[in-house]
C-alpha cells in the first residue's frame, strides 16, 4: 500500500512539472508582452526591460527559439528550483547586487513573485486559499448530504410523482447557471428581502465558527446547488442499479428489513462511485470557484486567478494552476486509497 502511494505521488509530481512547463510555454506563445503589464501605466522601454529582467522573463523578439522555447524553459527551470530551494527576487543577479536592500526572499516552496502586486505569490495564495477552502468545504458537505438523501428518496419512490418532481427539479437546477443562482440569492434574499445580511468572509479566528459558517451560507448554497443536481441524479441511478443486484435479492431472501436492505446493502455499494466523484469535484472547486467568489466578492483563489489573468501576472497564474493541479492529483490518490477501504476487492496484496 505504502509503495503504491509513493508511486502515485511520484507520478503526480512528474505530471505537475509537465503541467507547469506547458503553462510557461503557452504563456509566452501569446503575442502580448507580459513585461509590459508588469511595468505598469507609466512605462518606458527602459522600465519595461527592467521589469523583464527583474521577473526573469525571456527576451522578446529574439526568434522563436530564444523567446518562445529556450527562454520560457530557463524560466521554468528557475521556477522549479525555487519550489525546492526557495529563491530571491529580482530574478536578475546584477539587479540584486545593485540594490540589495530591495531583494525579497521567497522561501521554499516558492511559487514566484508578483511584480504587479509587489508580493510573493505564496503570500497571495495563502491569503486566498482559506476562503476558497471554506466555500468548497461547506458546499461539498451540502451537496453530498442533500444530493444523496434526495437521490435515495427518488430511487425508492421510483415512478411516483415524488420521484418525477425530484428529477424534474434537479434538471431545472442543473440548467441554471451559477451566476444566476448566485445573483438571485445576493440581490433578493440578502439585499432586497433582507433575510440574511450580505455575506462577507469572516475567518474562524476572528469571528468564531458560527459567524464563519453563517457568512458562507449563500456562496456555499450557490455552489452546492449546481453539483447537487447531478448528485441527486447519480445517486438515484446508482441506487436503482444496486437494488437490482443479486446480493440485494439475497439480503431480502434472508428476511432483512427493507430499510436495512436499502441502507446497508444497496446504498453502501452505490456510494463507491459517489465518493470518487465527490473527491474529484471537491478538488476541482478548491482550484477556485470563480463565479461564486466573484458574485459574493470573496477574495478566494478563483478571484485571484481572474485578476492575475487580466493583469498578465504570470507568477500568480502559474501558482494557482499548479495548486489546482496538485489538489486534483492529491484528491485522486486519496480517493483511490479510500476505495481500498470501501471495497475490499480493491485491496491489493
Amino acid at each position: 500500500m505504502l509503495a503504491y502511494v509513493i508511486r502515485r505521488i511520484f507520478i503526480g509530481v512528474i505530471m505537475l512539472l509537465v503541467m507547469s512547463l506547458v503553462t510557461f510555454v503557452l504563456f509566452f506563445a501569446s503575442p502580448v508582452d507580459p513585461a509590459q503589464f508588469a511595468c505598469g501605466k507609466n512605462c518606458s522601454p527602459e522600465l519595461r526591460e527592467q521589469a523583464r529582467k527583474s521577473l526573469g522573463y525571456p527576451p522578446r523578439n529574439q526568434g522563436v527559439w530564444e523567446s518562445n522555447i529556450k527562454g520560457p524553459a530557463n524560466m521554468w527551470a528557475d521556477f522549479t528550483k525555487g519550489i525546492v530551494a526557495g529563491r530571491d527576487f529580482p530574478a536578475d543577479k546584477e539587479m540584486r547586487e545593485a540594490a540589495p536592500q530591495n531583494v525579497v526572499h521567497c522561501s521554499a516552496p516558492c511559487l514566484g513573485y508578483s511584480q504587479y502586486s509587489v508580493k510573493t505569490v505564496n503570500t497571495m495564495v495563502s491569503a486566498a486559499f482559506p476562503i476558497t477552502f471554506s466555500i468548497a468545504l461547506a458546499a461539498v458537505i451540502l451537496w453530498v448530504l442533500f444530493g444523496v438523501l434526495i437521490g435515495v428518496l427518488a430511487a425508492v419512490t421510483k415512478g411516483s410523482f415524488i420521484d418525477r418532481g425530484i428529477v424534474g427539479l434537479s434538471l431545472f437546477a442543473y440548467a441554471f447557471p451559477a451566476f444566476f443562482i448566485g445573483t438571485f440569492l445576493l440581490r433578493y434574499v440578502a439585499i432586497k428581502w433582507g433575510l440574511v445580511s450580505v455575506p462577507s468572509y469572516t475567518p474562524i479566528a476572528s469571528g468564531g465558527p458560527a459567524k464563519w459558517a453563517f457568512n458562507l451560507m449563500l456562496p456555499a448554497i450557490t455552489l452546492a446547488l449546481l453539483y447537487m443536481a447531478s448528485y441527486v441524479r447519480m445517486t438515484r441511478a446508482f441506487v436503482l442499479e444496486s437494488l437490482t443486484e443479486d446480493y440485494v435479492r439475497t439480503a431480502r431472501a434472508k428476511g432483512v428489513s427493507g430499510r436495512v436492505v436499502l441502507f446497508k446493502h444497496a446504498l453502501r455499494a452505490a456510494l463507491t462511485p459517489l465518493v470518487t466523484m465527490a473527491g474529484l469535484d471537491f478538488a476541482s472547486v478548491l482550484g477556485g470557484a470563480i463565479i461564486t467568489e466573484s458574485i459574493f466578492n470573496f477574495n478566494g483563489l478563483g478571484k485571484l486567478a481572474v485578476s492575475a489573468n487580466n493583469n498578465y501576472d504570470l507568477p500568480v497564474m502559474i501558482g494557482i494552476v499548479l495548486m489546482a493541479g496538485a489538489f486534483v492529483i492529491l484528491a485522486n490518490i486519496i480517493v483511490d486509497i479510500l476505495y481500498a477501504f470501501i471495497d475490499p476487492r480493491v485491496r491489493v496484496g
Binding site: Y247, A269, P344
Partner: peptide, 15 residues
C-alpha cells in the same frame, strides 16, 4: 424458507 442462487459471486455482497 430460504433460497440459494445461481451465481454465488454476485449473490454475496462484495463489501
Amino acid at each position: 424458507v430460504s433460497m440459494i442462487f445461481q451465481d454465488p459471486l454476485s449473490a454475496m455482497h462484495p463489501y
